[in-house]
Design a protein around this nucleic acid. Structure first.
Length: 302
DNA sequence: AATGTTACCAACCGCCAGGAG
DNA sequence: ACTCCTGGCGGTTGGTAACAT
């Protein structure tokens, strides 16, 4: 037997709220408060609406402190950083954005921000050990964004938690490349939100060859038409860490993804709780105009 | 101008956690 | 300890505006 419905569906109005209903709800809540009981509220207020619907309408639209309109670049940064850190916990993310609701943030992510990220130019490049990566940078982060979390920070232990060393402008950046190490013994546990986006890029990626050190070198591209059907392609989904299929002569204990941070994503995006960094680069200044530019990526065995 | 497609976002659905009884 | 109820949350849907053909 299922749970009893929260309201009589047959006798409640559904669909878009009329201005009159909005006014009624707003007046009631401002005058009486919610009384801690949304289910009983519509009856008291004289609304033929489900209590949950009233709550949602109030929280997402009628609340006086709601901010309507487009998201700023700063908000983009915060959302991306927090999404990388905590995934689709929209209410938690929204709580860091004054005036924004979880629904707003969720919609914005699903309809715009994700596309904005995916639309970033992805350049094909095969790395060799002799490659010198260009200086790269990341979007600015502010001190109050609570950017932390990985237990294995790429930053010096003297830094607070795992936050990057912020300069006077509250920005940080990375130059050269960093190594994200994926320990195969724990594959499947890596930051799924990272793999989600990476996997979408990975859909057009493959490992074309091995370099002189027998390292499989992967090139990522959205522009190319390559598929993942190659035997050496990386198989990815949003639950499992990507890993090259076993190469005949390889016995990987783990592998590393050399990743240039030039894609301009917040460092935390690749700094999930189960990734560890080996910092081989240095931090460089300034912000990056584009959200994503996976300029270089290289996967190699330890 | 008409029609089809895409993008956007408000609203709904159903699950879950936590508190009250 | 258990059940029930409610609020909160994330995923999904549906309506419609905007754009393309």
């Amino acid at each position: 037997m299922g749970r009893a419905p929260c309201c009589d569906k047959a006798n409640v109005k559904r669909g878009p709220w009329s201005p009159e209903e909005d006014a009624t709800l707003k007046n009631y809540v401002e005058t009486h408060g919610t009384g801690g009981n949304w289910i009983a509220l519509p009856k008291k207020a004289g609304l033929r609406r489900c209590g949950k619907s009233c709550r949602l309408r109030w929280l997402n639209y009628l609340r006086p402190d709601i901010k309507h309109g487009g998201f700023t670049e700063e908000e983009d940064n915060i959302i991306c950083t927090l999404y990388a850190e905590m995934g689709s916990r929209w209410s938690a993310i929204a709580s860091k954005l004054p005036g924004r609701t979880d629904n707003d943030v969720k919609n914005y992510w699903n309809t715009k921000l994700k596309k904005k990220i995916m639309a970033g130019k992805v350049t094909l490049k095969t790395l060799t050990d002799n490659d010198t990566l260009p200086s790269i940078s990341t979007p600015s982060l502010t001190n109050n964004q609570n950017v932390k979390t990985s237990q294995n920070s790429p930053f010096p232990s003297s830094q607070n938690q795992n936050s990057p060393p912020l300069d006077a402008n509250n920005t940080f950046s990375i130059s050269e490349k960093s190594i994200i190490s994926f320990d195969q013994t724990h594959h499947g546990l890596y930051s799924p939100q990272v793999m989600d986006v990476v996997s979408q890029i990975g859909a057009n990626s493959r490992i074309p060859n091995y370099n002189n050190n027998n390292n499989p070198v992967v090139s990522l591209s959205q522009e190319g038409s390559s598929s993942i059907s190659d035997s050496s392609s990386i198989a990815m989904n949003n639950k499992n860490v990507s890993q090259p299929e076993q190469h005949a002569n390889d016995d990987y204990e783990s592998m590393e993804m050399l990743m240039d941070f030039g894609f301009g994503f917040p460092y935390d995006f690749a700094n999930g709780p189960n990734c560890h960094y080996e910092r081989v680069g240095e931090l460089a200044p300034s912000s990056y105009p584009e959200w994503v530019d996976f300029s270089y990526a290289d996967i190699k065995p330890h």
